[in-house]
C-alpha cells in the first residue's frame, strides 16, 4: 500500500470497492445494516461519541450510502474509537447494529494488516500474547505499578508477596500468578487447534509477525509437553 507525505494511505477506487464488498459479504452484514432513519438516537447514546470523533449514525449512513469511499474513510483510527458496548444496537428503533458493523470492519482491517490496525494494536501485544498462547487474557502479575501508575499507589499491594496472596484465595484454580486461572494444558492445546482452524493464528501473523513467532514457540513447547 502507498502512503502520501502525511502517512495517509493512497488507494484506488477499485481497492475501496473491494473492501466494501468484503464487508458486505460477511454473513452478519445484512443483519446489522437495516433501514436507517438518520434519527441519531444511536449517536446520542454512544459513550465514545462524548470523547472521540465517532458517530454510530455515520457508520450506518456511510454503509447505507453504498459509496465505498465513505466506508474506506472509516478504516483508519475511526473504527477503533468504538467501545463495543452495543448501546447503539440496543436503542436503535430499526434494530441496526453499528457496533457489529464496526467489528466486521475491524476484522477486515486486521486480516489485511492495515497500518492503522498495526499501530492501534501495537501496545496491545502483551495481552494478545497472553490470550493466544495461554488461553487467558489478564493475569495477576500484569497488575504492576509501572504499567498502571494512574491506578494509584495501592496497585503496589498486588505486586508485593503476590504468590502468597494468591495462595490465600480459597479457590485452588486461582492460586497462580501468571494466569487468571491455572489453565489445563489440554485446554490450551484444544484452543491452539481452534485458532489454527479458524484462521486466528494467521490473523496475528499478518498484524504482528514478531508476536506470532513468539506465540508459535510457546505453542510448540506446550504441545510437546
Amino acid at each position: 500500500m502507498e502512503y502520501d507525505e502525511n502517512g495517509v494511505s493512497i488507494v484506488s477506487n477499485d481497492f475501496k470497492k473491494e473492501i466494501f464488498e468484503e464487508a458486505k459479504k460477511d454473513f452478519r452484514y445484512e443483519e446489522y445494516v437495516r433501514g436507517c432513519l438518520n434519527c441519531g438516537v444511536c449517536t446520542g447514546g454512544c459513550p465514545p461519541h462524548r470523547f472521540f470523533d465517532f458517530s454510530p449514525r455515520m457508520v450506518l449512513q456511510n454503509c447505507k450510502s453504498n459509496d465505498p469511499a465513505l466506508v474506506w474513510g472509516m478504516m483508519d483510527e475511526y473504527i477503533w474509537a468504538c467501545f463495543q458496548c452495543f448501546t447503539c444496537a440496543m436503542i436503535c428503533p430499526f434494530l441496526n447494529n453499528p457496533g457489529g458493523v464496526i467489528a466486521i470492519l475491524r476484522e477486515i482491517s486486521v486480516r489485511r494488516g492495515f497500518e492503522s490496525a498495526k499501530k492501534v494494536l501495537k501496545p496491545y501485544s502483551r495481552v494478545l500474547l497472553k490470550l493466544t498462547a495461554y488461553g487467558n487474557q489478564l493475569s495477576p502479575d500484569m497488575i504492576q505499578p509501572d504499567f498502571f501508575p494512574d491506578w494509584g499507589p495501592h496497585i503496589g499491594y498486588a505486586s508485593q508477596d503476590l504468590p502468597l496472596k494468591r495462595k490465600a484465595i480459597p479457590m485452588p484454580t486461582l492460586q497462580v500468578t501468571n494466569l487468571a486461572w491455572d489453565v489445563a494444558p489440554e485446554a490450551m492445546k484444544e484452543l491452539y487447534t481452534i485458532f489454527e482452524e479458524a484462521g486466528v493464528f494467521k490473523i496475528i501473523e499478518v498484524v504482528d509477525p514478531s508476536l506470532y513467532e513468539i506465540i508459535q514457540d510457546i505453542v510448540d513447547d506446550v504441545r510437546s509437553e
Partner: peptide, 16 residues
C-alpha cells in the same frame, strides 16, 4: 482448570 477464556474481550478489543 479445564476451560479457556471465551476470548471475546480480545475480540472486542483487537478484532483478532
Amino acid at each position: 482448570r479445564n476451560q479457556t477464556s471465551c476470548t471475546a474481550w480480545n475480540y472486542h478489543g483487537s478484532a483478532t
